[in-house]
Structure formats: structure tokens, C-alpha cells
Amino acid sequence: MATTLQASLDRLRATRVWKSIFRRGPAVTNRSRSQAVFGNLFLHWLPVKVREKALTVRASYYLGSISFLLFIALTVTGILLMFYYHPAVPQAYRDMKDLRFVVSNGVFLRNVHRLAAHLMVLLVFWHMFHVFYRGGYKPPHEFNWVVGVILLLLTLFLSYTGYLLPWDQLAFWAITVGSNIISAMPFVGSKMRFILLGGNVVGENALLRFYVLHVVVLPLAAFFFIGVHFWRVQKDGGLTVRSKNDGKK
């Protein structure tokens, strides 16, 4: 059994199709391991080599990675949830009820999505504070810190726009209260709120706008900045790792 699995895997790896996709042999040498990273669009974000110290849990608590993985999990569950969601009043609320009561595993997906969203906001904050206290914002990482701040804002907006979608009392009043903060801005505040909500009150237009922002605009922006963020980590010399003489004069 064990050998047959291995053998069939090996046979698969020997096919032209496999090779055309992965363009490398088994990752047994450093060269082929490098190719594995280089040759893959998504892994290309990562450097070929990392410092051993940066792999330790205490170096980062994997906060950035987990935030990213949460983003992926949110994307997957979010796309699945979209199959049962109509951004309309009051159908949106009925869809929540159907997810809860009728759709197979619907309530589970919604729970995971909601939980992951809260966790992501929490972890992104934590990630930021952790990076700060480790001095990770210092040159040459300044720009990546700024990208990180943008990603923090995007995360907040993603969570905030998603908050309205169930169209229940919690959602409605949280967005009403939240959007009124915007109108406190001088001169442009009420106009901005008007544009964001597509009206003067949180209504059908607001739901549709928040939906589009939540499922298209903000995720694309986040994906783009996450790419920049990863890529800059690599370009700025990897994770900040304390050397022996850090903090000691």
C-alpha cells in the first residue's frame, strides 16, 4: 500500500503534464527546492532561503502568516456563502435564516467566516504591535510598515462592510452608528456618508454598496497590498531578527 502510493506518485511526477506544470523534479536538492519557490507564482512572494532564527515561533508567532491564512479562509468561506446570499432587503436576512436552518453546513460556514473575520482584525492589530515592539518598522522596512498600516485599514473596512450584510438589528445599528462618525468630518463628512451609503439612511442602496465593497473592491485591494507586503519582506531583507548585540550598547 505504502509503496504503491509512493510509486504512483512517482509515476505521476514523471508525466509530461506534471512537468509542464511544475517544471522541476522532486525537491531533493537545494536547486530543485529553489526552483519550487521560483517556479510557482504564489511561492514567488517568498524568498528562496530564510534565516533559521526567523522560523522560530517566538520570532513572529506566525502572526503575519496566520493573518494571511485567515484572509484565504475568509475568501473561501466567503465565496461559498455568496452562493446563498442576495444583497437585497429583506431577502438578505432570510438568507441568513436559510443558512442557519436549511443549507447543509451553512451555519458552520457562516460561523467560520464570522469568527475568522474577528480573529483577523485581532491578529492584524497584534501583528502590528508585535512588529513595532520588535523594531520591525525601522529602516529598511519603513515602506513595508506603511503598507502594513494600509492593510490594517483594509482589514477594518472589510470587516466593517461585512458587518452590514446579514441585515439584522446588530448589523443595521452598528453601521448606522459607525457611518455617523464619518459625517462628523467638517465640510465633506455628510457628503462622504451620502456616497458611502448611497442615500441618507442605511437602506437597500447601502446594502448593495457594502456588498460590492466587501466581496470585490476591498478583497482585490487587500490581495494586491498583501502581495506587495510579502514581496517587500523579501526585498527588505527578510524578517527582522534580533542579533546578539540588539538592545545592548
Partner: peptide, 15 residues
Amino acid sequence: GVATEVAEAHETTLA
């Protein structure tokens, strides 16, 4: 009416 659980269908809940 939409509920498919005994407690949710019959009783007062948050929702």
C-alpha cells in the same frame, strides 16, 4: 416558521 429546530421554532430567541 423558517426554523428547523424545536427551540428556535417555538420559543423567543435573540433572533
